[in-house]
Nucleic acid binder design. Sequence first.
DNA 1: CGGCACACGTGAATC
DNA 2: TGATTCACGTGTGCC
Lengths: 208, 208
Amino acid sequence: MEFAGSAMNDLCISPEHGRRGRLGRRKIIYDDTKEFKSKNLHAERRRRQKLSDRLLALRSMVPIITNMNKATIIEDAITYIQEQQESVKLLSDQLIEMDESLDETVKTVSDHEIDPAEEMKQCGIMEDIQVTYVDETKLWIKIILEKKRGRFTRLIEAIAYLGLELTDINVTSYKGAILVSSCVEGTYGDTLTVQQTKELLVEIIRSI
Amino acid sequence: MEFAGSAMNDLCISPEHGRRGRLGRRKIIYDDTKEFKSKNLHAERRRRQKLSDRLLALRSMVPIITNMNKATIIEDAITYIQEQQESVKLLSDQLIEMDESLDETVKTVSDHEIDPAEEMKQCGIMEDIQVTYVDETKLWIKIILEKKRGRFTRLIEAIAYLGLELTDINVTSYKGAILVSSCVEGTYGDTLTVQQTKELLVEIIRSI
DNA sequence: CGGCACACGTGAATC
DNA sequence: TGATTCACGTGTGCC
């Protein structure tokens, strides 16, 4: 059983053994007039060259190459792929987060904006309090309450007393109900929580 | 000049030439008791195994593998890296776009918050009070005043203190100014005069 | 000089 | 069977 190469084929390639430097820098001069033991020699040559070319292409794709070694090229490619996977994950997470928050605000906004008359008719004279997050210091509140004399003024006073500044406010009275939609912010830039503010408003309205 | 392998070392490895199947499925049985012509045989074995391992690791990183060939693995890795690069570019572009639009809105919003009196003057907005007759008990008032913290609340309090009930009110803040348009009526159905009410409002606003 | 990285031609296994 | 793929041991250039 013969094995791996033979001295017979010494002259088939250039004296320098076809090698000039490292990966991708060799100059091969084949002498195809000679005969070989294996018939798949040409195929093997093509195969080797193809693999070398792919490796070269891979090297050109990866920005950070620590070494020109075949193994190192693949290693760097692996770490690069990992970095890219993390980048993709991070970016898409951020994007999803942004999308969700945007959807949330749009949804709450459109919820608030749909057809005041319709909503009031549906709710009739049902009192309602909704608090929507705008940013850390700003909240948007919508209040529907039964119209009573001086009740709106007392509501404004109470809100101011709680340290909330009304930046924009819109008040409508209709069919015995008052609809207040307003933007409030903490007097000294305090962080406001939706739940806490809503509870405070419920307490206020119950007392007036 | 001898070249590439020799029959001398046939017995150094298992009869099946250490090969069982394709990439990553070989079972190598080395016989290190034999001597070899080349002294770097072990090193070469290690090198080959390392390269195979890297290639295997690369294969595990790439989700779509069309073939198990060495060349194909690298090829698929290249296309995967390209796809990932495009994904990263697309995602970061979207993120930048979103960020910019968000910055824009934040900027325009915060633009409103800077410099109340100055901005009003620049935009040619003057403080103004207008009172319009609706009927004996109802008046429509329009007030433009410089935005100051808590000023609106104090205005509402003062109006209530004067015995005026706010039935409908609309407040908008823009360019450092507050625009209040509201319908007021006397608390006990009193007759209201335009001139008198306007003077009262002027007095109130001057004091707050 | 020795270690390292590479390409080489080959036998065998797989399809 | 013929084509293809693989691992092998080796020769050689380079550091």
